[in-house]
């Protein structure tokens, strides 16, 4: 795994007025490697976009340097930089009357001549990019008629056609439904593996990032950026420390966020399997604390999960139910 991008004591931020600089983060030392997906996570306003824009040279750094393939980004002319790093931005495109093929063919701009005419090789590369993103059937459709997910795929295909070792994406999953998000993440992971590319994407989908990323960059205001493998960061409690707010807690065991609710009482739960897990989830959501059978007292309501059905034992009575909703009803009225 080859190192493709690295920063040295980089400071990022923006110019405010004439001579005032607002530094969002400083002393940033990061790197991106080939064949790896890195997810950049952080709350809104933490400087994710600023970092992405600085890494690809769209925005000036306020100190330090960014190097791609050993070349200093700020000293590289746009023509050369366009062959090193490609970007996919979200919600930026407002154009009409351009078909999908032409959009992907934009990726060849750094290589084509004066009028942007494609040669046979360019066309081959564009075809291949459309193939690997699964959008060949859309080639003649107008870009503006596509769904958000398809648009993202077209822009990713554009980046592939640009043949850069590095691809940066700013919130590529932001406007997609859940299957759409997963599809894009899978596409990016395959792209990184198959083409030995380094891919960085900023996202708010923490769960997906933990599943798909080879590496995470965690960002928040007024604290240094933390990097590492997702599993390590979960175990060290870093993810929790970056995202915990009042009433929202990251649960390391399940890798999910818990939204704390009002305490409703204790319930003893016995059983196993998927049905058990979902019963447990429902109880937690309603604010019940689940206790193990051995710690249970006689007056605690008890639920047995048997063969996908539920047995509720409350005040000596045994009630049988088929759905979770039915189980919860007497429990809630009982409290």
């Amino acid at each position: 795994m080859q190192r493709l991008l690295n920063t040295g004591n980089l400071s990022i931020g923006y110019q405010s007025g004439k001579n005032r600089e607002v530094i969002l983060h400083q002393d940033i030392n990061l790197e991106l490697r080939s064949s790896e997906i890195t997810c950049l996570l952080g709350p809104n306003g933490s400087g994710k976009s600023t970092l992405v824009r600085t890494l690809c040279g769209l925005q000036k750094s306020l100190g330090g340097f960014v190097e791609i393939n050993g070349k200093l980004v700020e000293k590289t002319p746009p023509g050369d930089l366009s062959r090193l790093v490609s970007i996919v931005l979200t919600g930026e495109l407002e154009l009409s009357n351009i078909n999908v093929f032409s959009m992907v063919a934009y990726g060849r701009s750094p290589y084509t001549g004066y009028f942007g005419k494609l040669n046979d090789n360019d066309v081959k590369i564009v075809e291949r990019a459309m193939q690997s993103t699964g959008i060949e059937h859309l080639r003649r459709q107008k870009f503006e008629t596509l769904s958000d997910g398809e648009k993202q795929k077209v822009m990713i295909a554009k980046s592939l056609a640009q043949e850069t070792p590095l691809i940066l994406l700013d919130e590529p999953t932001a406007f997609l439904d859940f299957p759409g998000k997963v599809e894009i993440m899978q596409l990016l992971r395959n792209t990184a593996r198959e083409h030995q590319k380094a891919i960085l994407l900023s996202t708010h989908d923490i769960n997906l990032a933990i599943q798909f990323a080879d590496r995470l960059w965690l960002m928040a205001r007024e604290r240094p950026i933390v990097t590492g493998m997702p599993e390590d960061l979960v175990l060290k409690g870093e993810i929790g420390s970056f995202f915990d707010k009042r009433k929202i807690r990251f649960e390391a065991e399940t890798g999910t966020f818990i939204f704390e609710t009002v305490f409703r009482g204790k319930v003893c739960l016995e059983g196993a399997g998927t049905t058990y897990d979902w019963m447990a989830k429902a109880l937690k959501r309603k604010g019940f604390e689940i206790i193990e059978p051995k710690n249970s007292q006689t007056d605690t309501p008890k639920i047995n999960v048997v063969k996908g059905k539920f047995e509720l034992i409350v005040q000596g009575k045994i009630l049988q139910f088929n759905t979770i909703e039915e189980v919860l009803q007497p429990l809630e009225t009982n409290q």
Binding site: C56, G57, L58, P78, G79, L81, S82, R83, V85, S86, I87, L89, E92, L93, E94, L95, Y106, G107, S109, P110, Q162
Partner: peptide, 10 residues
Amino acid sequence: LGENYAVNLG
């Protein structure tokens, strides 16, 4: 494509 993409494409 807008200024950002244009710059990134050289």
